[in-house]
């Protein structure tokens, strides 16, 4: 098969699990995650790549899934917030957010946590400025970002102590 066409099977890995499914040619990755895979932890915010609520990791990098055609994800490795941890077994970044009070309404949180994770995967000891730039594509209306920055710093410590 030279190229992937509309309605053909999309094959990718979501949270470590291989997935094969038929998607609409103009579906976004966000549509597919939420509507077809029931992974509703990824939020739809502005729907134009301006707020970061829909952030997922594609091959380790944060991406706005609301403007990312689903077909583009063919062959790629996707991580959503559901891929990090669950209530009984939180990822260190999630645990740090909880402890620092970095979550208020929670709408930005899944994207924020994933942006933070992507940063710490590459840069285990980021400066405050590096943290702020890494989360600059994730808008938060509640927290003023201070406790989020503190949480990322705490997560960096926790991860390096592991």
């Amino acid at each position: 098969m030279p190229v992937l066409n509309a309605k053909e099977n999309l094959v990718f890995v979501v949270n470590g699990r291989p997935v094969r499914l038929e998607v609409e040619p103009d579906a976004t990755l966000l549509d597919v995650l939420r509507e077809q895979l029931d992974l509703t932890g990824t939020k739809r915010g502005c729907n134009e790549g301006e707020c970061g609520a829909c952030t997922v990791l594609i091959n380790g990098e944060p991406v706005a899934s609301c403007i990312y055609p689903a077909v583009k994800a063919h062959g790629k490795n996707i991580v959503t917030i559901e891929g990090l941890g669950d209530e009984s077994n939180l990822h260190p970044v999630q645990q740090a957010f909880l402890e620092a009070g970095a979550v208020q309404c929670g709408y930005c949180t899944p994207g924020m946590v994933l942006s933070a994770k992507a940063l710490l995967d590459k840069n285990p000891d980021p400066t405050e400025e590096e943290i702020r730039i890494a989360i600059s594509g994730n808008l938060c209306r509640c927290t003023g970002y201070g406790k989020i920055v503190a949480a990322v710093r705490a997560a960096a410590k926790a991860l390096s102590a592991e």
Binding site: G49, G52, T55, I58, E61, P62, V63, A64, Y68, S115, I133, A134, S136, G137, N138
Partner: peptide, 8 residues
């Protein structure tokens, strides 16, 4: 844009 935009 943002890191999300610059990545793509």
């Amino acid at each position: 844009g943002s890191p999300q935009i610059r990545n793509v």
